[in-house]
């Protein structure tokens, strides 16, 4: 089953669902901060809340990857390694730009960039073994 698109969907469905829940929690907590007066304790709890779906997303992502065959695991491992390195470089770049007063990175710049880089590197790596 894991050789087919349907297999991929089954393997990664829990991670996908928890990722969506995580995003919903992030947006919901942002809305609460903006429109509802909360006590400091509630603000802290709300800030930590996305960690739960985020942690489950990572757990099921790793579980999904471990359920793939060895070549796919290799592709994912190479992708993660390269993405990590590129993200570090980009973090330094954002830091340099900020120090130079040219651009102040927002908190989600790194995350979004990392996801974009992940997709690009995955497509390249997958193509290499086609």
């Amino acid at each position: 089953m894991k050789q087919t698109l349907k297999g991929y969907i089954v393997v990664f469905r829990p991670a996908f669902v928890w990722g969506l829940i995580g995003l919903a929690v992030v947006f919901a907590s942002s809305w609460f901060y903006q429109f509802v007066v909360l006590s400091p304790l509630l603000r802290i709890l709300l800030a930590l809340l996305p960690l739960i779906p985020g942690g489950l997303f990572l757990f099921y992502l790793v579980k999904g990857i471990r359920g793939l065959d060895e070549l796919q695991q290799r592709i994912y491992t190479e992708t993660a390694t390269l993405t990590f390195i590129v993200t570090i470089l980009l973090t330094f770049l954002f830091g340099s730009l900020q120090r130079a007063g040219l651009y102040t990175a927002r908190w989600d710049d790194i995350g979004n960039t990392m996801m974009f880089v992940w997709v690009c590197i995955y497509i390249l790596n997958d193509w290499r073994y086609r």
Binding site: L71, Y129, R130
Partner: peptide, 16 residues
């Protein structure tokens, strides 16, 4: 072999 077709192709073409 319980692997993906991509794996078989990559082995046959000596990419993997």
């Amino acid at each position: 072999l319980d692997v993906s077709r991509q794996t078989i192709n990559a082995i046959e073409t000596e990419k993997y």
